[in-house]
Design a protein around this nucleic acid. Structure first.
Lengths: 208, 208, 208, 208
DNA sequence: TATGAATGAGTTTTCATTCAT
DNA sequence: CATGAATGAAAACTCATTCAT
């Protein structure tokens, strides 16, 4: 209802399908080149649309970034209920499960995720996008912040500054996608083992 | 001896000074806009040079990224001897000190660091840059990898996959710069306290 | 059948028309300035296209030279059947008729021809253009070489080195366009009379 | 005396030597690339001068073309007295000897000659250069026109339009340098045999 | 007389976006 | 709804020329 008429109101279902089509196409293109090297035409063609047709579903190239955020966070949100159910009322289990679910999404779209993670910074500065972006991202943020706060309240986690910890945990997960340089083509499970260990405090093991 | 170097044997010192000038200017420009929004002209002018003069010290816009890598890692490298001296033969102390030093550099050039951290991925794919980039980055990588390996050998740290841990710790530090979205304008010390706690295993405190 | 051609399967006819449009415009621009003084924008505008639109039909400025070669040789090729029919099996008549036809084309596009005649040398050195250029030019070359070889076989012409003679006769014709310096604004017929006389051996007349 | 003070009057002999140095250097550079690809800096360095120093001997890049004309025609002029002596009062011998001498110069500086031959057209259009260019070129022109007029007066040569014939004979010689495309790497003597034959009327031999 | 660092105008080329069909 | 030709603004990069030393 909010952005009901952004674009000549069309068949709701078609729009949804096309946007999914475009998201997946963009995801494939970004595996090959950067967001700035990739042209709108290229992404449209990859999605099976004519050069100009992408503008029926998107108002600008930058809006592709919003689409990425929406779609990826959407995939995370889809599994949250299940996670919460399984975690019962153990915030530690829930937090780790959310991180693991995030890692799954990140692994699915590594390069596109890396792009999004970087571009978000500039998108936030543009008034036209700020609100929409915040809204897209907030479920993810909350999914981390929720168990953190509960964990702290229950004395199961120790930290002072929530945003710092949210960011830190997010970065730990993001590493899988960002680590083109530092990280060899490590697979998801290997990476997960290490970051889970760090989060759980098993890294600085022995002495202490 | 006459024409010793292939590249204009120019005044060695002048080149060094100008490159520093450019580095700092780029750093300031990137605080305002993305690498792709920023024009070469803008960066040159910010450095007090005419539009075309930047090409006396850089072969292309992309080489600016190499300059960023060189300069930032350089600043880290400068403090490594001191760190190593202070750490004695305690790998845990050394690792934390390196992370802290990295965080200091990151904090000094937040936005430029974020740009570099992202663009590195594309630079690595370009054969012309790969070697130079690897060389620029390797001291940083080693500074983390060194104490990690020693720590593991001494049973002071527990992990299986070195690259994953290097990347994870790097990401933990990077968070300060990347967290435009997730992280409020948290200051360095606040952020450090949290990631140090995570690394040291104090995060999942209590129970465990 | 759907995506038969690699290059935009664009409307074949449109491409042809636009290329002709561009050829004629370039021809007009080159009457005023050199190839290197003339900007791509200027040529596009002269052709009634927007600055960047010329790149829908040409991959680079240098490809304009290929277009010149194609177009001019094309105009010569168009009249060759007629010439051959009229010449019967007299190689001398055919050779002179081909030279005359070449002179007609040269006269039609004097300056553009002069440009092409010069730039061909550099185009040939560029691997990307070599093959295409050779192919464009070869019908002209053959149109001269054919009657020459037949003439020699019949004892009607005397020469040893075919390429030298082809070049010499080509130069005789080209003179009309190149002679900005040496040649006053001599008209085509006057010039033709003299070079035909030279070729036919009537120049060093009398004695001998 | 004409252009005595064009440039801060210096040691006459030094200027002459430096200009020769530059001429030869330019000649070498043009064997590798076109006049427009070649940079002033490159030519200066090839001449053993610093980038800016070439401007002590030349007022602009275009003046290099004037230098080429001066130098090449100068080399032709040097041998004219000898040619005239040897030719006695046979205009046919003299004409052929001049053409042969021109061919020698052309062969010596093939690429540079080709450049000059083309650029002359644009130089003539620039008022600042017209007079100087005409003056440089005129000895060559006259060397051809002289014997032609005498030959016609004596009934030894047949033609109507002098400029056309001058141009045609010039083109015949120039072919050696221009024939990058049409002419294989034919050597001077081979080419000379053919154009001499054409000029002498031996080409359309037999029948007639 | 010679140098070479600096300049900044000028050029090619790309590409997001529009709109007639 | 969809297309894809056309647009034209923008940007990286080059290089002739100057001038402080």
């Amino acid at each position: 209802m909010a952005d009901a008429l952004k674009i000549p109101a069309q068949d709701e279902a078609l729009v949804k399908a096309r946007r999914r089509q475009i998201f997946l196409a963009v995801t494939r293109v970004l595996a090959r080149k950067s967001f700035h090297q990739a042209t709108v035409k290229e992404m449209a063609l990859e999605a099976g649309l004519a050069a100009g047709s992408i503008y029926m579903y998107l108002r600008s190239k930058d809006e592709i970034l919003l689409l990425l955020a929406d779609s990826m966070v959407g995939e995370l949100v889809d599994v949250l209920p299940e996670i919460r159910a399984a975690a019962g009322d153990d915030p530690r289990r829930e937090l780790l499960a959310v991180m693991r679910a995030a890692l799954d999404v990140i692994d699915r779209y590594r390069e596109a995720f890396a792009v999004l993670n970087h571009e978000v910074r500039y998108l936030e500065q543009r008034v036209e996008y700020r609100a929409a972006l915040r809204e897209s991202l907030s479920p993810y943020k909350s999914a981390l912040a929720g168990p953190l706060e509960r964990g702290r309240a229950l004395g199961l986690m120790r930290f002072d500054d929530l945003p710092s910890v949210v960011e830190a945990l997010h970065m730990l997960c993001s590493g899988l996608a960002m680590g083109a340089s530092m990280l060899a083509k490590t697979d998801k499970e290997t990476y997960w083992r290490e970051i889970a260990a760090i989060a759980e405090g098993r890294f600085f093991g022995a002495a202490g």
